[in-house]
Amino acid sequence: MSDSAVRGHDDASSPRSVRYREKLVPSPGVWLLVGVFGLACFAVGAPINIPVAIVVAVVLAAGLGLLLWSSSPVLEVTDRSLQVGRAHIEREFVGDVEIFRGESARQAAGPQADGRAFMNFRPWVSPLARIQITDPADPTPYWLTNSRHPEELARALGSEERGEDG
């Protein structure tokens, strides 16, 4: 699947109907840096042996790209649950969603963050969604995660999204 959200997937035969799915893959700028990394590896090895430098550069750049891709977390909302990376919670314990952009996102992720919160950050995605957790047995007050489409995430969770622009 692509890194964009999947919307409106309703398959009655599916045991879990996906309402929203997003993989937080690196932005085009990060992929450009992976290419620059490969060129730098080639430049270091080229004076010694050009064919070996090409192989090393391709292997290292591909390895870095694979690492970035495979470590990109998935946000998924189904009829029954919310998953953010490896964290998972039943939908009945999900409250309101608040959206932050710009300076307010920086404040929400830094000085105003609660140390008990679950946080899922990727530097190549700037909007944040703060998802309230209503489980009385869970000491985590909220989940704070990046999302390229936080309004769609909030709608999939059935929340009246509130936003703060900065």
Results as ranks from 00 to 15, higher is better:
M1R: 11
M1Y: 10
S2E: 13
S2C: 04
S2M: 09
D3F: 10
D3R: 09
A5Y: 07
G8D: 15
H9Y: 13
D10K: 09
D11P: 00
A12Y: 02
S14T: 06
P15R: 13
P15L: 12
P15I: 12
R19L: 15
R21M: 11
R21N: 06
R21H: 10
E22S: 11
E22I: 10
K23H: 09
K23P: 00
L24N: 05
L24K: 03
V25G: 03
V25T: 13
V25A: 12
P26F: 02
S27P: 04
G29S: 14
V30D: 04
V34Y: 11
G35H: 01
V36L: 15
F37Q: 08
F37T: 07
G38H: 08
A40D: 03
F42P: 02
F42Q: 04
A43F: 08
A46K: 07
I48P: 00
N49R: 10
N49A: 13
P51E: 03
P51S: 01
P51I: 01
V56A: 15
V56Y: 10
V56T: 14
A57G: 15
A57R: 03
A57V: 08
A57S: 15
V58L: 15
V59L: 15
A62V: 15
A62D: 08
A62S: 15
L64W: 06
L64N: 07
G65V: 06
L66E: 02
L66W: 10
L66G: 13
L66R: 04
L66V: 13
L67I: 03
W69Q: 08
S71Q: 13
S71D: 08
S72K: 06
S72C: 09
S72A: 15
P73I: 04
V74R: 01
L75S: 02
L75V: 15
L75R: 01
E76T: 11
V77G: 02
V77P: 04
T78I: 06
R80E: 12
R80T: 15
S81W: 07
L82R: 07
Q83K: 09
I89F: 01
R91T: 04
R91P: 01
E92I: 14
F93A: 12
F93C: 05
F93N: 13
V94F: 07
V94R: 02
G95L: 08
D96F: 00
V97S: 11
E98V: 07
E98M: 05
F100W: 03
R101C: 04
G102A: 05
S104W: 01
S104K: 10
Q107V: 08
Q107D: 11
A108D: 02
A108K: 05
A108S: 08
A109C: 06
G110F: 06
D114P: 00
R116G: 05
F118H: 11
N120S: 13
N120K: 06
N120Y: 10
F121C: 00
F121S: 11
W124E: 09
P127V: 05
A129M: 02
A129T: 01
R130E: 12
I133D: 05
T134I: 09
T134E: 02
P136L: 03
A137W: 07
D138L: 06
D138P: 09
T140E: 12
P141Y: 04
Y142P: 00
Y142N: 01
W143G: 01
N146S: 10
S147Q: 03
R148G: 14
H149C: 07
H149N: 13
A154E: 03
A154P: 03
A154K: 02
R155P: 00
R155K: 11
E161T: 12
G163A: 11
G163Y: 07
E164M: 08
